[in-house]
Design a protein around this nucleic acid. Structure first.
Lengths: 205, 205
DNA sequence: TAGATTGTTAATCGATTAACAATC
DNA sequence: TAGATTGTTAATCGATTAACAATC
């Protein structure tokens, strides 16, 4: 009896719930409810309960949810109760900003390797890390069991860089280039492009 | 007879279509079809035709769509056939990267003002722009009719900064802080947080 | 106990897909 | 003309919401 897969749209909301729970935990809040969370996130209470019910029972009638407990459960479900190593490819302005960003580590991710094609950049250091040429990608990805990459290269190069990543065993790519990439069978690509968000908003202005 | 509002999920796909059409135009491609676009974007051809049908008829039976024509139509629908002025608030690593990013202008947006609370940063220049204190926000937003802001401040300050933006007349915020912000009636907030994307992917790993 | 809130069911709502006449 | 592709309708599929028994 194969279990029904969880809808991707539900999976996509879990990180948002997790973020809110971490915020509440940091504030010292012990308990929350689907209603309280829903109000904070602009989501209906019923939807939050329904979403969570795909994974188990985490609350108590009359009381709600223990913030730390639910947080730990979602961390486990999303597999961010560990640290994922990330390769960052493309060390321009955005790549540098990502390399400096301190918000990855306590949410389950650590950039452990930097890559660029520009010979002028190769060998430079950012913090602890040295920028490497793409010829080192296979070796580093395999050696450090990296499964996740972030791509911050120009649009014209993104497709080729993604191919290279997949060919050396990367399973997930977060793509910052403003172009839609195809993921091969068994791999995943997520896109993040500020302009698409802005354009979605101007429609309503 | 009030027209039915276009589903937001459809509006959200238009920027993706536009991005693909701009790519094709740059490649010199004259004509495309719902099937071709769908293949490139990982979306069904039927969905693309259905989405476009909310706004009018843009294609020709047997031929498909003229790339430049459809591109112009979507630019018009999304209102990015003009240039929107943007205020960028929070000039840390990410804010700096956004300030340097060259990809806004040809897609309808221009950062025209930089703000930070740090006295050490106020007065510094990035390119043509000088970083200003938040006390100048109201004046600049009104003076330059700015309707869109990007917030790249730490999570702890994001809520307050957003309130300030809305209070001086900003209608749309693209929020880079890892926290969910509420938009007041008549305003819009879009969130962009790399970690939520990464966490969504690790679920499947 | 009385009040609150969960997890779940069934109903509703909305989005996607399949199919096809129209027609370039 | 023959082949291709649109725009649209109806059917299907899936997601959200409302309601409520269970129970803390």
């Amino acid at each position: 009896m194969p279990t029904k897969p969880i809808p991707d749209i539900v999976v996509g909301r879990l990180p948002v719930y997790l973020r809110a729970l971490s915020f509440l935990a940091a504030e010292g809040v012990q308990t929350t409810s689907s209603q309280d969370l829903g109000k904070r996130l602009g989501i209906s209470a019923a939807q939050i309960r329904k979403d969570l019910s795909h994974f188990g029972e985490f609350g108590k009638q009359g009381t709600g949810y223990n913030v730390n407990f639910l947080r730990e459960q979602i961390r486990r479900i999303l597999k961010v109760d560990r640290e994922w190593s990330i390769a960052l490819i493309g060390i321009g302005d955005l790549g540098r900003a990502l390399a400096h960003y301190g918000g990855f580590v306590d949410r389950g991710f650590r950039i452990v390797a930097l890559f660029d094609v520009d010979p002028a950049k190769i060998g430079q250091r950012i913090g602890e890390l040295e920028i490497m040429g793409m010829d080192k990608l296979a070796e580093v990805v395999r050696g450090r069991s990296i499964q996740v990459a972030m791509i911050a290269v120009p649009a014209a190069q993104a497709h080729q860089v993604a191919e290279q990543c997949f060919s050396v065993g990367i399973k997930s790519i977060l793509n910052y280039a403003p172009i839609t990439l195809q993921a091969p069978e068994g791999a995943l690509v997520q896109h993040t492009d500020p302009v698409t968000h802005l354009q979605r908003m101007t429609y309503y202005l």
